[in-house]
């Protein structure tokens, strides 16, 4: 039968571990800063959303679509059935605040040594990415409803459908995030124990 004495980390290994810890904390801080940046530059994020939204609307169903400004608010202007319509993306319609919150949360978790950094990065990217994608789907969907069913249909889809979609989306995003993060790397001493027993 083999016995395993707890190994004392060599100085070089200790130094490497310290370096890794510092790198993880720096990465976490950078990601938190990125999340805060999302919140601060939310107007630019809306401009970007309008650009992507216009491209999607143009590609999917409109005869023509352009990103624009409507009374200073980023908007998607598109033409359907010889009519031009404008969809304004207000701060409450933007995803920057939700995505920023997820990114900040992810950054904070990245600094914890017990969590696998790669998993937290993947979870943060997936969680925030899902929300961004969902909001684009919502913007394009609202544009389509507006063009097909007019103002009445838009009000239904915007108020009811939008609220339901975004709440469900945030629940799913957070669920995915929290589903990915906890999984743990198999601990090294278990591996060495198995090897020793063999």
């Amino acid at each position: 039968m083999s016995t395993i004495a707890p190994a004392t980390p060599a100085p070089s290994r200790r130094a490497a571990r310290r370096l890794l810890t510092a790198a993880r904390i720096l990465l976490g801080l950078a990601v938190v800063a990125l999340g805060i940046l999302f919140l601060v530059v939310e107007y630019s994020a809306r401009l970007l959303e309008a650009q992507v939204g216009a491209w999607l609307v143009d590609t999917l169903f409109a005869t023509n679509a352009l990103p624009s400004l409507s009374a200073g608010t980023p908007a998607v202007v598109f033409g359907v059935h010889d009519t031009f319509l404008a969809l304004r993306i207000t701060i409450e319609c933007s995803i920057a605040l939700y995505a920023g919150s997820i990114v900040i949360f992810g950054g904070l978790l990245m600094m914890l040594p017990r969590l696998r950094t790669v998993r937290v990065v993947v979870a943060t990217a997936l969680g925030a990415g899902l929300m961004i994608l969902l909001n684009q789907v919502r913007i394009v969907g609202l544009a389509w409803v507006l063009s097909e069913y007019g103002r009445d249909g838009f009000e239904w889809a915007h108020s009811l459908g939008g609220s339901f979609l975004m709440t469900a989306g945030l629940v799913v995003s957070l669920g995915v995030f929290l589903g990915i993060v906890p999984r743990r790397r198999p601990r090294r001493r278990f591996r060495s124990t198995r090897t020793a027993v063999r």
């Binding site: 701060i91 409450e92 605040l97 939700y98 919150s101 975004m166 709440t167 945030l170 629940v171 957070l174 669920g175 929290l178």
Partner: peptide, 26 residues
Amino acid sequence: MDLLFPVLNTIAGVVISLSLVYFLAA
């Protein structure tokens, strides 16, 4: 006020969603 509504609504949305995730998961 322009910023207060969206910020508080976002916080409310995050709190509701987190509690829903925990409640539904449990």
